[in-house]
């Protein structure tokens, strides 16, 4: 509970974002790779969308749609070629302050030479938080992901799903305004995956954090998101911004058997299929096929 208060306290102090309720703003973002031997590979042609404060938005696209490129650009790990990524009113030029990333490769994003506690604590140390408070924050974050008993273990002693929960605990202990998740559950089994999805939903709801969740799984995107952003094939543009008008209380059983869920899933599925065939939104489709 007190993480919520801390988060809102943090938001209130932030003078950078007085004007809008937009947490994350992508303005005509383009990314072209220029490597010797393969000059001018266009990954992202143009992406322009906003994520409002406290929203949970999923990004899906066919494989090779530049999802990872997009996420790395938003995370400030990759420079964009044109346009800008704006977080809390500030243009992203490097990894921004108020952002935490949960990577797909859970096993490789945790420091194996540290215990679970040390992993979560390290970013807090960097923030200059005093020891007692750090301890408290780590304990609370572990409680949130129900891993309190694993605090003194090493990540590699835990199962894949537990490791990813440690990564999530580390991210929420950091108290970001935006939480980026890059296909975080791609490598865990289906049951664990369902659990983790519900964990993300519940954390999102009671922490009030903004979440951008990248996935290739259509069901997951519709189940989790308030909106689903569907990307086209490379060079990536926005295929469609689908609003998920499912009730906010979601449940693996009832939500997934809701007819509306089926409709939305069908719609996103169809969009992805079209994207895979190289179709693009509106008039650009024909032109691109010619090129």
């Amino acid at each position: 509970m007190s993480i919520t208060t801390m988060l809102s306290g943090r938001g209130a102090q932030a003078p950078a974002a007085p004007k809008t309720d937009v947490a994350l703003d992508l303005r005509n973002v383009q990314k072209t790779y220029d490597t010797p031997g393969r000059p001018h590979v266009e990954a992202i042609r143009n992406l322009d969308f906003q994520v409002r404060r406290g929203e949970l938005v999923c990004v899906v696209g066919p494989s090779g749609a530049g999802k990872t490129t997009l996420l790395r650009s938003i995370a400030g790990l990759l420079d964009v070629t044109a346009g800008e990524v704006v977080l809390d009113g500030t243009t992203v030029t490097g990894p921004p302050e108020g952002m935490a990333v949960v990577f797909q490769e859970y096993g490789r994003s945790l420091f194996p030479w540290m215990t679970v506690r040390q992993n979560i604590e390290l970013p807090l140390k960097e923030k200059g938080i005093p020891k007692a408070e750090r301890r408290e924050k780590v304990d609370r974050a572990l409680e949130e992901v129900s891993l309190s008993e694993a605090a003194e273990q090493h990540p590699w002693q835990l199962s894949g799903g537990m490791q990813q929960r440690v990564a999530i605990a580390r991210a929420i202990a950091f108290e970001p305004t935006v939480l980026l998740m890059d296909e975080p559950f791609a490598a865990v089994d289906a049951q664990t995956r369902a659990e983790l999805e519900d964990l993300v939903r519940s954390l999102w709801k009671h922490l009030g954090v903004t979440v951008l969740f990248v996935t290739h799984d259509i069901d997951e995107a519709v189940y989790l998101g308030e909106r689903v952003i569907v990307l086209s094939n490379r060079p990536t543009v926005l295929m469609e911004d689908v609003k998920v008008d499912l009730p906010p209380e979601r449940d693996q059983l009832t939500t997934r058997s809701d007819p509306r869920f089926g409709e939305l899933r069908g719609h996103v599925y169809e969009l992805i299929q079209r994207a895979k065939r190289g179709e693009r939104p509106d008039e650009t489709a024909a032109v691109d096929k010619g090129v």
Binding site: L77, P95, V101, F103, R108, S109, F111
Partner: peptide, 25 residues
């Protein structure tokens, strides 16, 4: 591991902490 480098970067670890807690171990 590049993901560890990305993790260190995205949590803004200072060069010193990156060296002592990430690179050398």
């Amino acid at each position: 591991e590049p993901v560890l480098g990305d993790t260190a970067k995205s949590y803004h670890l200072s060069p010193w902490r990156r060296l002592v807690f990430v690179v050398l171990p």
